[in-house]
Nucleic acid binder design. Sequence first.
DNA 1: TGTATTTCCTACTAAATTCATGGGAATTAT
DNA 2: ATAATTCCCATGAATTTAGTAGGAAATACA
Lengths: 129, 129
Amino acid sequence: MTVSAKGRYALRVMIALAARENTVPLKELAAQEEIPYKFLESIMTELVKAGLVTAVRGKCGGYRLANPPEECTAADILHVTETSFTASACASDKKDCPRAEICPTLPMWRALDDAVDSLLKQYTLKDFL
Amino acid sequence: MTVSAKGRYALRVMIALAARENTVPLKELAAQEEIPYKFLESIMTELVKAGLVTAVRGKCGGYRLANPPEECTAADILHVTETSFTASACASDKKDCPRAEICPTLPMWRALDDAVDSLLKQYTLKDFL
DNA sequence: TGTATTTCCTACTAAATTCATGGGAATTAT
DNA sequence: ATAATTCCCATGAATTTAGTAGGAAATACA
């Protein structure tokens, strides 16, 4: 029920990018945020694929936010990094749970997901600067 | 960020106990709820220690709720079973995170914990019957 | 054109956590 | 006594998370 190191790293890096205008190379980001270089590299790949970050290859390249800080929420970021970002496995994969139809707790898991999501949507990168 | 099988099992068993007046032996509970006997046994031990369930040893023994169903919330149960029931490791163990003082995201993790907790407190075992 | 700097891609390894299983001691109704 | 039960301690398997390694592809700049 805890956000992974990966998720916390991702959020931290996004805040770091929000604080800078130019593209920042991974080497610098990893050093500044004290995150293992190669691990961060894999995280950046995901953030790029999700459209939250823009990558510039080659010399003088690096990463920068794809959008203004106030347009990127904590929910956006964590949905990318957290493999199963839902309170209960049942709530997301209906077919995986044969009890879904009769499960008395399903409504609660759904409500919990909604509560978490709506709270995380309230925080944008701008709020962390 | 997902509630473990252990947590879901615990909730299910507690609902099952809430639906019955008498003490129910583990053997029966495990069969009815289709939960591995020995795994459930370890879960019951925790629930007993937490004071949510009363155990009766010996022949004709078993488990029953320690309190009326309307007095036991989902939060009570999940706090027992989930090893780290907090959105971020930082939010619970201050000393583990050297950045706690300056961390811009800590308030959000705290708010998330509060949101989750207050929602889970709204559901009692009675609501699931 | 060559070189240094950078992201991209694929595969692998290590550590931690979750999910169980096994055997037997202690307790209790009959 | 005996059978049915919880309690206690240790171990093992499976899954997920965290971190590493090496090199290919792109790009700025001399």
